[in-house]
Amino acid sequence: MSEKTRYWMLALPALALMMIFYIWPVLNIFGISLTEPEPGFGNYTRMFDSNAVKVSFVLTFRIAAITTVFCLLLGYIVAYTITTYGGRRAPLMLGLVLLPFWVSVLVRSFAWIVLLGRSGLVNDTMMDWGIIETPLRLMHNELGVLISMVHVMLPFAILPMLANMRGISQSHMMAARGLGASEWRAFREVYFPQTLPGVFSGGLLVFVLSLGFFITPALLGGGRVMMISEYISYQIQELLRWGLATALSSALLVATALVLIVAGNFVNLRKTFLERK
């Protein structure tokens, strides 16, 4: 048996698993979208005509975009702090970034409900201190979804940027300052451009994950902020419209693929998803 065949044999179990439980169902979803309730492109024409679908898609992309922007802003600061000022505490700080991964997304989302609810911790505290008279609406709207989405997605933004920043020598900033640039200017013109690959990677990761995210928007949106994944689940569970739901799923998959293809022109995808340091 040749070397090559042996390695393929080793990869076979994982490959088979993917084929049976992922590729095959995805193909089936595609098939259902073309055959339910009757064969043809009826589901797709209905999807493109439906205003509700359009609204949901726009909402999904908007929330994903805003989440990405905030994750990048906050994540950049965290990653920069860890690399520049972490020193011996850097592993601890990194551990704190990773800590949320030990808690399921479901639990984290419920925690936000406890915090942001009408008589949640945040509202109660602010009313106690007399900052507000009546409770603010912090959830069951886009704000609530965004707050918890940013929280859940933040590590995915931090990690690629951290990996990138670790590879950048501090001497560049020092050199720039030694040559006459102020600290801010040295950061802007010399350091920041070098971190762009990390920023793009983190941004892409967060954006793509956000597009198909389900649990957090469903819980914090309370049925009022219907992102596309929840819309799909609603079609199946409440209306039993398998045809439309599978068409939407296919559309989401294609949309995500398009994002990746477009992004592939700017970001090294191999680095973003495969070669995590």
């Binding site: 020598s169 001497s171 560049h172 020092m174 050199a175 720039a176 300052r177 030694g178 040559l179 006459g180 640039a181 102020s182 600290e183 040295a186 010399v190």
Partner: peptide, 16 residues
Amino acid sequence: PEKRDFAMVFQGYALF
């Protein structure tokens, strides 16, 4: 450092 008007060449060159 930026106000001192000295120039520095670093060990690792530190080219941008």
